[in-house]
């Protein structure tokens, strides 16, 4: 595929127009899932077709795009989607959260606090928070209409009865502005507090399920809970073994077959910036370089221009823009460390 064969940002203008209208209605009714005529995309359903369509409808040539999967810029699907937009839209890409104007994400919210002027686009597999309680769209639509969310509370309370606590650790349901119950996509519940009162626009795209929904900036988002069992954003009871961060979400990495393991930040950019700023953890690693990459000269579809592989990056590049939000733990509400 070369850029010249397709419209700017892949989608045709009429499709973008339709998606843009859906996004605006989503903004007007925060948390409500707007049906849209999702298109078949050149990547499979489940790989982020909803997010890709929303990003394509939002992108301008002036944007700087960041794509993460599991918090990391270098996971294969993140690399693949980033390359797709480099090729079809010719936009600049970055791994630095603070530099990006649009961030497409799967399963995480960046640790670095987002700012005005940024858009966070979530890839959503099942947009309907009530789906696992009621498989029928016709029924769940009625439940949203009538604000009949009792079933959800019953489910959460059954968890408490059985396990002593709410046994939902990701895709934890939230209520938006006191009205719609919303699925925040499969982010760990550690990330839920970042949904509320964000400075950025948050857009959610579910391609296969043909839904778009949105959170405007400074929208009040509450994780469902009970007075006697308040919501707790939990994480592993460790510091990052590379950068020493105590307040970031951690991946557990098995290092040998004898039970050895380590914990590292799931947000690779956050971790890199902390190390660049001199922080080190138990197994601390030295600093790596900036990840900002100029737009490729379209329509040449050459490989490797993304420079996503850190091993290939220029060690002499300018230091990364790691400033805002770092180490501030701006969203650090009620973080509970897991006792082992």
């Amino acid at each position: 595929m070369t850029a010249g064969d397709y419209n700017f940002a892949y989608l045709d203008e009429q499709t973008k127009c339709m998606i843009r209208r859906a996004i605006l209605k989503g903004i007007a009714v925060p948390g409500y899932q707007v049906p849209f005529a999702s298109r078949e995309m050149p990547m499979p359903y489940g790989w982020g077709t909803g997010g890709v369509q929303v990003t394509a409808a939002c992108l301008t040539p002036d944007d700087t795009l960041k794509v993460i999967d599991q918090g990391a810029d270098d996971t294969t699907n993140a690399v693949s989607i980033r390359k797709f937009f480099q090729r079809t839209a010719g936009v600049a890409v970055t791994e630095a959260t603070a530099e990006a104007t649009i961030i497409q994400t799967r399963h995480r919210i960046p640790e670095t606090a987002l700012t005005e002027g940024q858009i966070l686009v979530y890839q959503v597999p099942i947009p309907e928070p009530l789906r696992f309680l009621e498989p029928r769209e016709t029924e769940t639509r009625k439940m949203h209409e009538l604000e009949e969310y009792g079933l959800m509370h019953v489910k959460l309370y059954e968890d408490i009865a059985r396990h002593g606590q709410i046994a939902t650790s990701y895709a934890y349901p939230v209520k938006v502005e006191g009205r719609y119950v919303m699925d925040p996509s499969p982010i760990p519940k550690f990330d839920n507090p970042k949904l509320s009162d964000s400075s950025a626009i948050q857009l959610f795209g579910a391609g296969r399920e043909q839904r778009i929904y949105a959170l405007p900036p400074y929208t009040h988002v509450v994780s469902l809970d009970f007075d006697d069992h308040p919501f707790v954003a939990s994480k592993a009871a460790h510091d990052c073994d590379l950068c020493g961060a105590a307040d970031s979400y951690l991946d557990e990495v098995i290092t040998d077959d004898l039970g050895g393991r380590m914990f590292v930040c799931s947000d690779t950019d956050f971790c890199r910036c902390r190390r660049a700023a001199g922080h080190t953890g138990r197994l601390g690693a030295p600093v790596t370089a900036s990840r900002t990459v100029a737009p490729p000269p379209p329509p040449s579809p050459t490989r490797g221009e993304g420079g996503a592989d850190p091993d290939l990056s220029d060690p002499g590049a300018s230091p990364p823009p790691c400033g805002e939000g770092l180490g501030v733990g701006g969203h650090r509400h009620d973080i509970k460390e897991t006792a082992e």
């Binding site: 599991q70 699907n77 399963h107 650790s169 499969p186 799931s266």
Partner: peptide, 10 residues
């Protein structure tokens, strides 16, 4: 596809 963030929370 990787789901290790959600698996970690589980």
């Amino acid at each position: 596809l990787p789901h290790y963030v959600d698996f970690q929370s589980e």
